[in-house]
Design a protein around this nucleic acid. Structure first.
Lengths: 257, 257
DNA sequence: ACGTGTGAAGCAGTTCACAGCG
DNA sequence: CGCTGTGAACTGCTTCACACGT
C-alpha cells in the first residue's frame, strides 16, 4: 500500500464524499453477487443497474477510489470487490456488541448480515439479570454490569444500541467511556456524543412517517383528478433519507386541540 | 429499467424539499415530548437543540410549511404538533402489513413505534404454514396465500417487507399488484417497482459498513502521523446517510484474490 | 469503437446574516 | 429588543458530455 503510482498514494485519501461512502456497500453487494456467478468483468452501466443507481454516478464514485477500470472493457469484478472491501475496512474483523437484547436486539443478533463481511458479534449485553447466561443466536447474554470489561477485553469499537429509548443515552455514555467510537442506534432518541464518535441511526417510525407523507400526497393528487384506480403520482426511485439524530422520548398519540 | 426519473415537480406550490420531509418526524418527536411536559412555546434554538439540528435549518424547514411562529416569542408547541402531523399525514390512520414474521418481523410487530402515530398493524403475513394462526404481538399470523385479499380487505397502502432477501422481490410484486404504493424494505435487496410506488430501505449491514469506513479512518489517522491542524478524528454529529435501493443477494464472505 | 474517467454545468441543501414584526 | 422568516451566498452532490486510453 501507499506505493505511489502516478499520483499521490491517494488510494484512501481523506477525500471520499460521504454520499459515495454510503453507496460503496451497495456496489460491493452487487459485485459480490457477480463474483459468485463467476462474472469476470462489468461495465459501469451493468453494475449501476444492479446497484440501482445511474452509471455516471457510479463512475464518479469509483473515480474517488482510483482508476480501477479498463477503458473499452469495464471493471474487473474480483479486483473491485477487493478494493471496495479494503476501502470500507472490511478486510479486517470488527467485533461488535449489541446492547439491549429484546425483540429487536435478538433479531439483530440472529441477522446474517452481521456475521458476514467482517463483522462479528463479540457479545450481547442486557440489563435484565434474568437474561444473563441465556444464549441468543448461540451467544450467551451478559449482564450490563460488565459492559466496560466486555468492551475492553474484546477490543470493541462498534456498538449497537437496541435498548428502550430511555436507556439509550446512559448506555451510549458507558459505551463511549469504555472506548467505543462508532454507534448504531436503533432507539428513537437523539444521542449526544463527544467529538470523534460517530453515530448512525435507524428509526422505523421515521421511515414510516416519510412514507406516509408521500402516500398522502399521492392520495391528494388522485382525488384532485379522477377517482382512478390506477396509481399515478409521486415517482421517486431516488428518494433520499439522511437525517441522523433522532429526538427523544416515546411516541404517544397525536391529538392536538 | 431502474430509470424512472419522472422529474420532480419542483417547488411550485406544494413543494417541500425531501430533506425537510425527512426531518419533520424528528421535530415532531421533540415537540411531542415538550407537549407532554406542557411546555407552551419553544424557540427555534431550543427545539433545534432537542432535535439535534441547527436552528437556521429548522426555521428554514418550518418556513416551507408556513409561518407558524411568532416573532420575538417562538412556536406554539401544540399548534406545531398539529401542523406537522397533518403535513405528514398522521392525522389519518395508516393500516400497515408486515410480511415475513421471522425474528425481525416479530420485533417490528412488537415495536411500539408502529402502534403510535397513526400507524396500525393491520396484518402479519408469513409464507410458513406452521406460523398461520399463531399470534405475534397479539395479532394472528396469516398465510401469504391470502396476501392480496388481506391487502384489499384492509385498504392497506403501506407494506413492510421483512422476509429473507430471496423472497423480497416476489413479495414486493404481489404487494404492489394488490394495491400497496409504499414499501419499507428490510431485506438486503434492490427492489424494482413501477412508477408511483415509493420504496424506502433499512439496511443494517450497510450502516455497519459505513461505520467501519469511518472507524478505519480514525484508526489510520491515529496510527500514522497525527495531523497538525485542529481536532483529530472524524467528528460528525450530522453524518448523512441517504441511499435508497440496496443491491441484491445475500452477503457471503469477502475474500478476493 | 467502446467504455472509463473527468472537467464543467446544474441543482439541492445548508448556512449566513439581517430585515421585519411582535 | 428577541426571534422569526428569508433572500443570498456557499457547499456538496449529481448529471452531462466528451476527450482519452485500450
Amino acid at each position: 500500500m501507499a506505493t505511489g503510482r502516478t499520483h499521490r498514494p491517494a488510494t484512501r485519501s481523506r477525500g471520499i464524499p460521504e454520499a459515495t461512502v454510503a453507496r460503496l456497500p451497495l456496489y460491493l453487494r452487487a459485485l459480490t453477487a457477480l463474483s459468485e456467478r463467476s462474472v469476470p468483468t462489468v461495465s459501469s452501466e451493468e453494475l449501476a443497474a444492479a446497484a440501482g443507481v445511474n452509471s455516471a454516478k457510479l463512475r464518479k464514485d469509483f473515480s474517488y477510489l482510483g482508476s480501477y477500470g479498463t477503458r473499452g472493457v469495464g471493471y474487473d469484478v474480483e479486483y473491485l470487490v477487493y478494493q471496495i472491501s479494503r476501502e470500507l475496512g472490511l478486510t479486517q474483523d470488527w467485533p461488535v456488541v449489541i446492547v439491549g437484547i429484546g425483540n429487536l436486539g435478538a433479531a439483530l443478533a440472529n441477522y446474517g448480515g452481521f456475521a458476514s463481511r467482517g463483522f462479528r458479534v463479540a457479545a450481547l449485553i442486557d440489563a435484565d439479570p434474568a437474561m444473563a447466561g441465556k444464549p441468543v443466536a448461540g451467544i450467551p447474554v451478559q449482564h450490563s454490569d460488565d459492559l466496560e470489561k466486555i468492551i475492553q477485553d474484546n477490543g470493541v469499537s462498534i456498538g449497537v444500541i437496541a435498548t428502550p429509548a430511555g436507556a439509550a443515552q446512559p448506555v451510549c455514555d458507558r459505551l463511549v467511556a469504555a472506548g467505543v467510537t462508532s454507534i448504531l442506534n436503533f432507539a428513537p432518541t437523539v444521542l449526544t456524543v463527544p467529538d470523534g464518535v460517530d453515530v448512525r441511526k435507524v428509526d422505523l417510525s421515521i421511515e414510516l412517517q416519510i412514507l406516509a407523507f408521500h402516500e398522502q400526497r399521492k392520495a391528494g393528487e388522485d382525488a384532485a383528478h379522477s377517482d382512478g384506480t390506477g396509481p399515478a403520482a409521486v415517482t421517486r426511485e431516488e428518494s433520499d433519507a439522511s437525517a441522523d439524530q433522532g429526538p427523544d422520548g416515546d411516541v404517544p398519540a397525536v391529538m392536538p386541540a
